[in-house]
């Protein structure tokens, strides 16, 4: 299961081939759910689940799906999984589910999922597709969590809704950065992550 080649499927999307910072996919949800850490983590877990499961299902069906209707089949599979996730969240973490609102439903349209189904699951074994799904989900989640961490820390002074910036700072004149809560800052934070990543790994810089 964890040969070097398979391990690469898992680790590549986290750094070198990250769906957000390298392929620049799935940006919309990265902007929307990263104001606080908690929804970002829940969103990441949901995407990891949907991605891995849909990759496995499509990979199992890959020889039976007629080429012409494959997108529809993929959508049905993803939609079914997303509904499961949505119902699960509503049942067990209702508050977070309310915060995430439509963005759980919109996982269906997440470009990363469709991209991996098309590019990977349709031509690989279920085992490899599963690892690829987990890897890409983790890559997506990692960026989401980094962005959410900074946005929550500087925007609200909290982490996971626990106050971390001491009250003393506020008395001394510190103020939360309101721009961090607005969507543009998510884009800028993602941009800074891309910048840092590319200056560390020069192979990623395009000509």
């Amino acid at each position: 299961m964890f040969s070097k080649k398979n391990l690469k499927l898992l680790t590549d999307p986290i750094n070198k081939n990250n769906p957000i910072t390298v392929q620049v996919l799935g940006i919309c949800s990265a902007l929307a759910v990263t104001v606080k850490l908690e929804p970002a983590v829940v969103m990441s877990l949901s995407v990891i689940f949907v991605m891995a499961m849909s990759n496995v299902v499509i990979s199992l069906l890959r020889n039976t799906i007629p080429k012409r209707i494959r997108i529809i089949v993929q959508l049905v599979v993803v939609a079914a999984l997303v509904i499961i996730v949505d119902q699960f969240l509503k049942a067990f973490v209702f508050d977070v589910s309310k915060q995430l609102s439509v963005f759980v439903g919109l996982i269906i349209t997440n470009c990363i999922i469709m991209g991996r189904l098309e590019a990977f699951a349709l031509s690989n074994s279920p085992k490899r597709a599963f690892l690829d799904g987990i890897g890409n989900g983790l890559g997506y989640g990692a960026i989401l969590i980094i962005v959410a961490f900074f946005r929550e820390l500087f925007g609200s002074g909290t982490i996971w809704d626990i106050q971390v910036v001491p009250e003393k700072f506020y008395q001394l004149g510190y103020a939360n950065n309101g721009l961090m809560i607005l969507p543009p800052m998510a884009l800028i934070v993602v941009g800074v992550i891309i910048w840092v990543q590319r200056s560390r790994n020069r192979e990623l810089i395009e000509e």
Partner: peptide
């Protein structure tokens, strides 16, 4: 613009 949106009360 940064100041305006980040620290509106100031």
């Amino acid at each position: 613009a940064f100041l305006f949106f980040a620290y509106p009360s100031w």
